[in-house]
Structures are given as structure tokens and as C-alpha cells.
Design a binder for these strands. Structure first.
Length: 645
RNA sequence: GCCGACGUAGCUCAGGGGUAGAGUGCUUCCUUGGUAAGGAAGAGGUCGUGGGUUCAAUUCCCAUCGUUGGCUCCA
């Protein structure tokens, strides 16, 4: 007999060789029906795999992420089986589960695969699923695996097998389809009750652009039809929040072919929003001891040769601007740090004045690949809420923590709760990609890790994601469609001070090298606004909203009074407009609601008599009448509630 | 940059080898209306751009620009 420990700590005894499925059966019939896979000690196993010694077992269902993973992984195999039936001779790359479903990379040869084919594949998948085929695991030798796929003529699988050690290779078979796979899988295909092909895209074999491009087919499946319907509804909802759509509808920003791709034009309303964000950040930074600076949009080639950016990005960035007579070369600035280094160097610095914190809303230009551009989240010209902190080595950690505090303050004020902090370290396999010595890198990486730990951040660590001059702590949030974006970033840098020969005079009257911290809590204003739009679905916090009120006169008889109210609100820096169109009040309300104006102030005969406004809140409805004075303090109270938290 | 899809009125989109259509917005007129669309008339498009096929192209083909879903990249 062996002991099986369940997640609640209870221990049950079973015959040696018991399967997780039998464990589930012994607990309850319902569980046996719903269980998909099991976590045995620390690895996820098929339910049918015998357990031969004492173990911790966690039974996984659709409600566990790992259960979903197994479900979608098995669905990828089902997709492959369907494709093989429909398109004989198709070759397969890899087919893993992803966050919202799964994909399979396939080589369809000369065949094309498009929207029209989706339904056919979905039907075939469901037809095969109904066969209740078991996912059968079989361990095979390397020679056997190679023989199978050689015979099948699937060079991609052979490429994968090449890197696997003999004795660790397994096949999974369901119905007529056999795949090289580590597993684990759900017991049989009948759990899959709903299937949808989401889209197709090109993907390079093994992610290398030198390799052949395969067709990546994305799909999603569910154990119930209802869940698929709900999933599709959620996607529809997300589309409504897309910042590109809302940006157009709310007249925040636009693009023009004539201006150039990836170069956003900020419309008046978007500019207001953006300027409010800037103002907010300026204030926060002023309090935190930053000093604003301003630097030009271009810098000489020499500047970037010194910084190392020329060597690293020179050929892959916008090409230099040349002077007609002197033959000098200038680059559009792709970042602000070199300029700020030169500001630091304008005079000798004493250890007593460090840290020096130089802040600038610096607009930078980067040549992003055309296929990368995406709304406001990835553009070629954008403004960073940039700052560089020059400090002594003994101040690094403290400064780093202060920056984390600032970032958290910003996120809190704007209602961002769902973010992760990504610690981006050097790729230990490929140190050539980076500049600087091991010692500096290790010091910087340690400082970041410790600071993040001290602040209790929820972190993930990514090797190879560091900037070429130093490790980073990035704050990542998701957009409406679940795509992850980097917002704030904090980077420790020992290299630029070296390259720019930055110095300060220490207490010992000797020259020392300061450390630099690059940081941008928003990251870029453009991306931040994009994520903010999607985060609040265009219903901005009151203090940020471009139009904070709309005054809606019942008829043109009350236009003068409306104008009077408007001017009084303006005097208090409350911003909005009067809707003087020749329309009925219902229409004006509807339009203001659609435009997501936070407050509608309705003025008619009653209001004019009493010097009042009838207040209607966006999305909520009538709040009743109040005097203009009352409304002003009501409004200011609402703003303060958020900002003075 | 690579692969796929798309590009028709300001916006959202339908159409299709014989030089175009809806809704909405816009203009004018009627209406002066109390909490999510009042009525009528009118103006708006060399169908992204350049080639080719054809008696004829907005429609078919090619190229190009842009948008888009991914891949690769991101100081």
C-alpha cells in the first residue's frame, strides 16, 4: 500500500500502481467525471499513469490553470488530427496550449488556409471528439521515433527529436493520430464539447526568421458550449475597449498616412488628457526631489558613439540628419539619457549633492519595424516621462526603492491593480549582447532583486530581457485583448557613467564614478494613455476626463444662462462645453452619454430661476438639482477623493 | 522586415466587368421640446495609389502605400 496525500493534507491509502483516475473515483463520482489530469508531486501526469510510491496528488479539473492547459494541449492534438484527415500530407511543428486556448504550427505545403476553412475544421474536430478516443501514452526509443517520422516525412518533428535524449521520448496517440509529445493529456476526446478556430498567422519555425514560415492556427475549446459563447462575448466586449477604436470615437488621437506611419497626432481632447497626466507626474516628481530639464530633439552622432547606442542601433534606426556645409551628422534622439549625462557634466559634482535627479518629458524617435506598429502602444515617435538619477553606489538601493514607491503611487492614483513586476536580467548564455563587466552587472542585478523583494512586489524574472547596458525592473499590464505591455520601467546602469566619464568628488577628496538609474513610471505617454483608455473603457477618472461636464440647455431660451454657468465653472478650472444645438434634451443627453462625458448639467426654466443645474451622472442618471456653487464643491470633492488618497 | 487578411462618403459598412449604395454625421428649413435618437430637404466618393488584361475596371491580375492578425524585434 502507498500513501497519497491530497492538497487538503488528508492522507489516503491505495494499492501500489493506483492511477489518479482511481483516486478521483474513490473520492466522488462527480470528481471522476470532471477530472482532467493530476499533479503528482510536482509534475502533471495523465490520469491513467500508475503511481508506484507515496506521493502528493492534486486532481486537476477545468477550474485549474493546469487542468485547462492539459485540456487545450489535448485540443491541439485534436486539431492536428482534424487537419490530417482534411488535408492529408500536412506536416506538424509544435502545438502547445497558450493563455486563451492553443495553437498548432503546420506546414500545409502549397495549400492555403483561411477564414472559409475554419468551420470545416471545427466540425471535424467535434466529430472526432465524439468518438471518445483515448489519449494513449507510449514511451518510444529515439530510433523508433526517428523511424516513425522519417516514414511520415515530417521534418519538423525530426528536428525536435534530434534534440531529445533517448529514453525520454514519448508518443501520444488518439484515434488515427500519433504525435511526439511529452504530455500530459486529458483521458479522452469526449471532454471537448465546443471548438472554435480563432485565427491564422504566420510563424517562423522555432521562432527564427531565417527558418521557413509555418501557418499557425489558433483555436480554443471548452467542455461546454455555453462557455464558448461566453468566451466569444468577452472578446466582443474587449474589442469595444480597444484604444484604437475609442481613440477615434472620442477624438483623442489620429494617424495620417501623410505624416507617416507610427507618428500619432494628438487631437485637442487627447492633448488635454495627456497634459493632465503630465501635470500630475510633474507634481509628484517635484515632491520627490526631481529637477526638470529640457533637451533638444536631436543630438550629434558623437553623443551616441559615446553612449554605445550608435554601435548597437545606429544601422537599425532613423538615419542621420546631415548639415549641408559642415558635413556633421545628427540623430533624432532615441532616448534622453546621453543628453542628461551631459547636463550632469556641466560642472563638478560633490558627493553632498547626490543624488541628482534630472527629469524631462522627452520626446524620442525610434525606427520600429513596420509590422510592429500598433495603435498608440507601439509608435515611432513618443514621449517618455523620463528621468535619470545620478547617485553614489551606496545610495542605489534606497533610490531604487523610492522610484518603486513613485511608480506604485502613480498606479494607485490611476486605478491599475493588475500588474506584475518583471525583473529582466542578462542572458547568462550570451553575455556578448551586453556592455560592461560582470562585477557591475552582478551589483546592479542584486540591487534590483533586493529592492523588489523589500517592497514585496509580485515579480517574475526573465533572463535575457535586460537592456544592453543594465538590468531592468519593468511593470507589465495587460490590454483589453489580454496582450501584455510594459509600462513603467526602472533600470540600473553602471555603463553610461563609465562611457561619459561621469564623476563626483567624494568625502575623501577623490574622484568617484556615480551610478545611474533610468526610470519612467508611465513609460511612454502614448502607451500609457492607450492602456488607460482600455483599462477604463474610455470612462476616464473625473480629473483626467477631457470634457468634465456638458451643459445641456432645454431650449435656446436658456442659452444665456448656460453660458453664465459655463463661465463660472471655467473660472474653477472645470472643463467642458455647452451643447447649444437645436435638439431636444433627450438627444443631447444621449450624445453626451455616448461621448462618455462624466456630468451632464441640464438647465431650463426651473434652473434659471434658482441659479441651479440639474446634475446627471454618466452611466448612472439623474442626481437632482443643486446650485452652481454646490455643484462646484461637489465636483472638487469628487476629484480630491481620488487624488488625495 | 516576414506570412495572411483588409482598403468603397467624415465615421461604420453593403455592393459588384457597363463610371456606386445604406445608416450615421454634416448643411438648410420646420420644430422650442425636461433626462439615451423629433421631422423634411440637400450637399458629400477620380471606390488607397500606379500599372496591366478588356470594347469597357471601382470590380479581374501585378506592383506599391497604408491598416490589421501573428512571427521576429524593442535603447
Amino acid at each position: 500500500m502507498i500513501d497519497i496525500t491530497l492538497p487538503d493534507g488528508s492522507v489516503r491509502q491505495y494499492e501500489q500502481g493506483v492511477t489518479s483516475f482511481e483516486v478521483a473515483q474513490s473520492i466522488s463520482e462527480g470528481l471522476a467525471r470532471n477530472v482532467l489530469a493530476a499533479k503528482v508531486n510536482d509534475t502533471v501526469w495523465d490520469l491513467s499513469r500508475p503511481i508506484n510510491e507515496n506521493a502528493r496528488v492534486q486532481l486537476l479539473t477545468w477550474n485549474d490553470d493546469l487542468g485547462k492547459n492539459a485540456f487545450w494541449h489535448s485540443s491541439a492534438h485534436l486539431l492536428a488530427e482534424a487537419l490530417e484527415e482534411l488535408y492529408p500530407g500536412v506536416k506538424f511543428g509544435i502545438g502547445p496550449p497558450v493563455e486563451n486556448g492553443f495553437y498548432y504550427d503546420v506546414d500545409l505545403g502549397e495549400r492555403t488556409f483561411s477564414q472559409e476553412d475554419f468551420a470545416k475544421v471545427e466540425q471535424k474536430m467535434l466529430e472526432l471528439a465524439r468518438n471518445k478516443n483515448e489519449f494513449k501514452r507510449r514511451e518510444v526509443s529515439k530510433a523508433e521515433a526517428i523511424e516513425y517520422f522519417t516514414q511520415k516525412g515530417d521534418e519538423y518533428k525530426l528536428d525536435l527529436i534530434k534534440d531529445l535524449a533517448d529514453g525520454t521520448i514519448s508518443f501520444y496517440e488518439q484515434g488515427k493520430f500519433v504525435d511526439l509529445c511529452r504530455g500530459p493529456h486529458i483521458p479522452n476526446t469526449s471532454h471537448i464539447k465546443a471548438a472554435k478556430i480563432m485565427n491564422v498567422a504566420g510563424a517562423y519555425w522555432r521562432g527564427d526568421e531565417k527558418n521557413k514560415q509555418l501557418t499557425r492556427i489558433y483555436g480554443v475549446t471548452f467542455p461546454k458550449q455555453k462557455e464558448l459563447t461566453e468566451h466569444l462575448q468577452r472578446l466582443e466586449e474587449a474589442k469595444k475597449r480597444d484604444h484604437r477604436k475609442l481613440g477615434k470615437e472620442l477624438e483623442l488621437f489620429a494617424f495620417s498616412e501623410k505624416v507617416g506611419m507610427g507618428l500619432p497626432l494628438w487631437l485637442p481632447k487627447g492633448t488635454l488628457l495627456r497634459e493632465r497626466l503630465e501635470q500630475f507626474m510633474r507634481k509628484a516628481q517635484m515632491r520627490a526631489g526631481y529637477q526638470p530639464v529640457v533637451t533638444p530633439h536631436i543630438g550629434s552622432k558623437e553623443l551616441y558613439v559615446t553612449s554605445g547606442h550608435y554601435e548597437k542601433y545606429g544601422a537599425d534606426s532613423f538615419q542621420p540628419i546631415k548639415t549641408p556645409n559642415e558635413g556633421e551628422e545628427f540623430f533624432l534622439k532615441p532616448m534622453n539619457c546621453p543628453h542628461h549625462c551631459e547636463i550632469y557634466k556641466t560642472r563638478p559634482r560633490s558627493y553632498k549633492e547626490l543624488p541628482v535627479r534630472l527629469a524631462e518629458f522627452g520626446t524620442v524617435y525610434r525606427y520600429e519595424q513596420s509590422g510592429e506598429l500598433h495603435g498608440l502602444t507601439r509608435v515611432r515617435g513618443f514621449t517618455q516621462d523620463d528621468a535619470h538619477i545620478f547617485c553614489r553606489p551606496d545610495q542605489v538601493k534606497e533610490e531604487f526603492i523610492k522610484v518603486i514607491d513613485l511608480v506604485l503611487y502613480v498606479f494607485q492614483a490611476l486605478g491599475f491593480e493588475d500588474y506584475t513586476a518583471q525583473i529582466s536580467l542578462r542572458d547568462p548564455e550570451n553575455k556578448k549582447k551586453y556592455i560592461g563587466g560582470d562585477e557591475a552587472w552582478e551589483k546592479a542585478e542584486t540591487a534590483i532583486i533586493e529592492a523588489a523583494e523589500e517592497k514585496g512586489l509580485r515579480t517574475v524574472t526573465e533572463l535575457g530581457e535586460a537592456a544592453f547596458y543594465g538590468p531592468k525592473l519593468d511593470f507589465m499590464v495587460k490590454d483589453a485583448l489580454g496582450r501584455k505591455w510594459q509600462l513603467g520601467t526602472i533600470q540600473v546602469d553602471y555603463q553610461l557613467p563609465e562611457r561619459f566619464q561621469l564623476e563626483y568628488i567624494g568625502a575623501d577628496n577623490q574622484r568617484h564614478r556615480p551610478v545611474m538609474i533610468h526610470r519612467a513610471p508611465f513609460g511612454s505617454l502614448e502607451r500609457f494613455v492607450a492602456v488607460l483608455i482600455e483599462h477604463c473603457g474610455g470612462n476616464f477618472p473625473l480629473w483626467l476626463s477631457p470634457d468634465q461636464f456638458a451643459i445641456l440647455p432645454i431650449s435656446e431660451k436658456y442659452q444665456d444662462f448656460a453660458q453664465e454657468v459655463y463661465e463660472r465653472l471655467q473660472q474653477h478650472d472645470i472643463r467642458g462645453f455647452v451643447d447649444n444645438r437645436d435638439e431636444k434634451i433627450g438627444r443631447k443627453i444621449r450624445d453626451a452619454e455616448v461621448q462618455k462625458v462624466p456630468y451632464m448639467l441640464i438647465v431650463g426654466e426651473k434652473e434659471q430661476e434658482n441659479g441651479a443645474v440639474s446634475v446627471r451622472k454618466h452611466g448612472e442618471g439623474d442626481l437632482g438639482a443643486m446650485s452652481v456653487e454646490e455643484y462646484i464643491s461637489f465636483f472638487q470633492g469628487k476629484v480630491a477623493e481620488v487624488l488625495n488618497k
